[in-house]
Design a protein around this nucleic acid. Structure first.
Length: 554
DNA sequence: GCCGTTTTCGGCCCGACTGTTTTCAGTCG
């Protein structure tokens, strides 16, 4: 609608309808026209649209717009820093319909000449378009795992004579994946080929496939699928070989042998046996990067990697007080149902006006409600938190007496994301040094495959967290996974505590904790270094102690 | 297109930033 010059306020009302529809607990498919109209933001027109989707499983208006929009223009909608207005102009004035043509036009200085554009915009556009091209057909881990599991199940179902497993980067739980790799051992390759040829959601790339490898494309996502083939007796060896990173495989073992050579000697019947032969303890698949796992293995200090089941509570969550979809009570109830001992609610702070951030008087209202809920929820406890915006100069956006009214504070950056490394680092360190800061939220602001992290000096930031006793978040949202596991490793070395936080904006968001655990494990995270693996009473004491320290310093 | 009433049409969330512009439009969180 934005691209086709539809009325701005009409667009706004569609947006607000979607916002409210996502919040509602009702199943839209069960509602009549009248019932639909009762939903806030839904009037006669939008009710009819939902009804059309209910009846026909599609929407004529949407299909029509989609058919008028080139695929490259849809891709451009993802360019960070560029919205519909600028894309519309590029499309109409320069007749550009692909990211590649866009880059060429930037290089030919054609974009800077457009009204409202300039040299800087052109440069940023080129950079942003290259970033998107680079990330094309990558999947976030969540989607890759989901697709991979469906493929494994389908292929397993083809015959009893098939062994199949995820392998490669998806088995190592990398944050973004290309391609999705599987290993299949079978004597019935024809069945597998037929499956790839016939599966509606796949395109089998026969020409690019060979006797040891089959390739396909997942049509809706564009994801690449690579299926390694082997004989049944080679399954373990091949699983090991295709899982490990090149660095892991080539690592010099005792006697200067590498795994690559070891695997040539014989067929093993388990991965444990392979490590045994190398005189090493078992190394979990997600650690096989060739980075630091051998240091642990050789000194017999393999960490006992964190499990989701070891997490006792959920910190950093939003409710309808700010931009969450579900009420505080609903969030708390569901958290309790999942078996957690506590919930840390941390709605947006007042600076985040776009997210309905909490003014001081609304904080008081929320605290009253939390007190009431805590009275009636038995052993379960809601902790009073806030996701306080880190302002441009590194200060938090409430006065000390307001900050002191919380049990814990997540300090996060949401604005001015384009500082240079030095300024951004100093800003973060100032926030870390604030005695009221409990947890540093999503430290680099990255959105995987969408927005690059702002540059920071990771070492300096982590060192500051160690010095001031600030916990670092692994934001478990599949698009963030921030702090990156490569830096979590350094944080663990410095003894910094980690909090695996879902940043849930709805009840279902709690389940993202799994993805945070995945990246924590890659860095060697254990329950001992995870703050939300503490029990309710332990974390209560921890928060209390932190606050007393803060008050004595403030 | 939706809402809410001043019941028939006017107003629609907002503050900051950026790169343009020469006073503001577009984008973002």
């Amino acid at each position: 609608m934005e691209l086709f010059g539809e009325n701005d306020f009409k667009i706004k009302s569609y947006n607000s309808a979607v916002f409210n529809l996502e919040k509602t607990e009702k199943r839209l498919a069960d509602l009549s026209l009248d019932q639909l109209e009762e939903i806030e933001g839904v009037g006669k027109s939008i009710a009819k649209i939902i009804d059309e989707i209910n009846r026909t499983q599609s929407l004529g208006y949407y299909e029509e717009m989609l058919s008028k929009t080139p695929a490259g223009i849809l891709e451009m909608m993802k360019l960070s820093g560029f919205g519909p207005k600028k894309i519309k102009l590029i499309w109409e004035q320069l007749k550009i319909e692909t990211l590649e043509d866009l880059i060429t036009a930037c290089e030919a200085n054609k974009v800077a000449a457009l009204k409202g554009f300039g040299d800087k915009t052109q440069e940023k556009l080129k950079e942003s378009a290259s970033f998107l091209i680079q990330n094309r057909y990558y999947l976030h881990y969540r989607e890759a795992e989901k697709l991979g599991k469906i493929l494994v199940e389908d292929i397993q179902g083809l015959s009893d004579n098939i062994k199949v497993s995820l392998t490669g980067e998806v088995r190592r739980k990398m944050e973004v994946i290309k391609p999705v790799e599987l290993l299949v051992a079978t004597t019935e390759v024809a069945k597998l080929r037929d499956y790839l040829r016939d599966a509606e959601e796949l395109e089998f790339l026969e020409k690019q496939s060979g006797p040891r490898n089959l390739k396909a494309i997942h049509l809706s996502s564009g994801a690449e699928i690579s299926i390694h083939l082997c004989k049944p007796e080679q399954f373990v060896n091949e699983l090991f070989r295709t899982t490990a990173s090149p660095l892991h495989l080539s690592y010099a073992l005792e006697g200067n042998q590498s795994f690559t050579q070891l695997l040539k000697e014989k067929n093993y019947d388990s991965e444990e046996a392979i490590y045994s032969a190398a005189e090493l303890p078992f190394i979990a698949p997600e650690l096989r990067e060739g980075l630091w796992e051998f240091d642990w293995a050789k000194s017999k200090k393999m960490p006992e990697l964190l499990e989701v089941s070891e997490l006792k509570g959920v910190l950093h969550n939003h409710s309808t007080y700010s931009d969450g979809a579900h009420s505080l009570e609903a969030m708390a109830q569901y958290c309790k149902e999942l078996g957690y001992e506590y919930l840390g609610i941390s709605d947006h702070s007042k600076t985040a006006a776009y997210a309905n951030g909490l003014q001081e008087f609304r904080i008081k209202e929320q605290h009253k409600e939390i007190d009431l809920l805590n009275e009636k929820m038995g052993d379960f406890r809601i902790f009073k938190g806030i996701e306080s915006d880190i302002l441009g100069d590194g200060s938090l956006d409430y006065s000390d007496d307001v900050l002191a009214s919380f049990d814990f504070i997540v300090a996060s950056i949401h604005s001015q994301l384009n500082m240079d490394e030095k300024t951004a680092t100093n800003r973060l360190i100032k926030a870390i040094a604030n005695p009221f800061t409990t947890i540093l939220g999503h430290p680099t602001g990255r959105l995987l495959l969408q927005r690059q992290a702002y540059p920071i000096n990771h070492k300096a930031v982590i060192d500051a967290c160690a010095e001031y006793g600030v916990v670092i978040e692994i934001n478990a949202h599949p698009y963030r996974l921030d702090l990156d596991w490569r830096h979590v490793h350094y944080a663990l070395e410095k003894g910094v505590m980690i909090s695996v936080n879902p940043d849930a904006h709805e009840k279902a968001g709690y389940h993202d904790m799994y993805f945070g655990v995945c990246v924590g494990r890659k860095a060697g995270l254990t329950a001992e270094q995870t703050i939300n693996a503490l029990s309710r009473s332990e974390i209560e004491k921890y928060f209390e102690k932190r606050k007393q320290q803060a008050l004595s310093k403030a």
